[in-house]
Design a protein around this nucleic acid. Sequence first.
DNA 1: TTGTACGCGTTATCAG
DNA 2: CTGATAACGCGTACAA
Lengths: 341, 341
Amino acid sequence: MKNKKGVTIYDIANELKVSPSTVSRALKDHYSISKEMIKEVKKVAQKRGYRPNSIAASLRNNRTNNIGVIISWINRPFISSLISGIEEEANKAGYNVIISQSHDSFDNEVANARALYDSRISGLVVSLAMETQNYDHFSQFIKNNIPVVFVDRVTDELNSDKVVIDNFSAGFMATEHLIEQGGERIALACGSQHRNIYRERENGYLAALREHNIPIKEEYILHSELLNAEEGFRIAEHFLSMDNPPDAIFSVNDTAAVSIIQYAKGQGIEIPQDLAVMGFNNDPVSLIIDPQLSTVSHPAIEMGKLAAQQVLKQNQYKDVVKSETVMLRTELLVRASTKRK
Amino acid sequence: MKNKKGVTIYDIANELKVSPSTVSRALKDHYSISKEMIKEVKKVAQKRGYRPNSIAASLRNNRTNNIGVIISWINRPFISSLISGIEEEANKAGYNVIISQSHDSFDNEVANARALYDSRISGLVVSLAMETQNYDHFSQFIKNNIPVVFVDRVTDELNSDKVVIDNFSAGFMATEHLIEQGGERIALACGSQHRNIYRERENGYLAALREHNIPIKEEYILHSELLNAEEGFRIAEHFLSMDNPPDAIFSVNDTAAVSIIQYAKGQGIEIPQDLAVMGFNNDPVSLIIDPQLSTVSHPAIEMGKLAAQQVLKQNQYKDVVKSETVMLRTELLVRASTKRK
DNA sequence: TTGTACGCGTTATCAG
DNA sequence: CTGATAACGCGTACAA
């Protein structure tokens, strides 16, 4: 029961009859300290079980070793992989990662941003909540030179770094693929229009139809707020009970796409002969559903790593105020749910 | 460009011509401060955009508002839901959550524990790495009265709080169910024996066989380190190419179970007639595979919430040194992959 | 009810 | 190469 208060650099300094500054410097291999002193100090530190108090250091330096992350729901394959990437990269650089979920609610996002700001994170990675249309809660970071990097669900209203995929061309590719497989009545199960990822995928879909001179029909386009399994079923039910049902559906996420397949199979509809189904994200379920789901790869881990790198880089060069957008390549993954030939 | 350094209680004190301590107290509704003063202070704080510096407070109080989490891989359904539960509960109490992944490596776990310790977290939630068999890296927390709560993958070697499910009875139920469905040669796809969750599930399996007077055959028990999709295929291949192959397989996770079904289907084996397959975890894929996978529910979010509560509670009553084990109920989810009648 | 003064552990600056 | 000192922002014993 010796160190109720923990070992500090003062304790080490006392033991070695040197000053605390020397100890402080020695511990970080400062160039002005002799090799021997460094060895001495580290030996004693080791012996006494010294652990640096990063709180104190943070107070002094006015910056922590934490980077914050705000995402919608952590328990989604894309998101958890994204975080995995962030965490790996941050860890490598000696940073910790603080997670908070917005649950797709604007109010939560604002509250989380505030809590993270108060805890003096030295960088923030955000994937926007579905609801969010106002971005003032990020200005406190920007004003104080704390880097903010947006991932996947981003906004153009703020001038900051972004890591995204090319949603437009992905939507285009996916739709074109359905056309090439003989799709004539291609439906779209889409998400809310004010979130870039869905808007751009839809634009890609529309462009592909136009380029191939396929008439765009409003009734083949559905916007759903959640795009979860239940809504997937409802969407399938809606489309497949039309007088002139689609012969192909492009769902902008895999969750809904899988539900669509399950519903269609239940109705005795043959996939892909009667109905081709295309998803988005390459979630694990896309390989489990029978027939396997064609989808678009979404490099979650890579995106996480890049976002973390952006934050760390910005942290290095505080003065340079340029904003980068990194756009990653995606791949069309053609599987049984669309292969007709 | 006024507050390069941010607004502090001193600024507020100056503006109101009172002392910093008054401001400090007013901001936390200290009983000794007059209502009016409190209102004044808060108004000015609001106006100036004051944000408390929790670093400084942490240094003073020697505790942060962060709780740490060490898990194997964040991008697994069970784990990400677990974290979701922890995060929700912690957030509600004004705490942030710091995540770090061990990737099932002992060395990583030790490094993470150290990093979290250095960052002065005020509590730790751990689900042990597969490799871990030595627990010294947690003693620094315990020695310093920082609560450590183990979840799911726990150890008996440390006297601390635990949140678990009853793996033994779950394994027993699952196996018994397979027996009731006519299984006579029931195989087990298990994980490493030194991790409680797998060991206990196996014990449940063995007990069920004994209770029903079914001979235990070594060749029907396989231990795999990873239990991922690939190993699932290998396990299936192994079992199904035996001279006398099993007519039922209990896999201790869903990932491997799903692969087993996929492999078997590819071999023209009928599920569940020729082979009943039982999983564990109730991952999303269990509802996507055809036939749907019978499995055991694993209340991940609930476990996360409870673990967070334990940490927070221990933080309240620092002196009380008792260790609780919370054991949650699980449910057998019978689906098409085992229903034979 | 309010103010004074010190300390939490570290690090930057300046001096030697 | 090493030491003394101040400061980071807040909380609290003690004093008034």
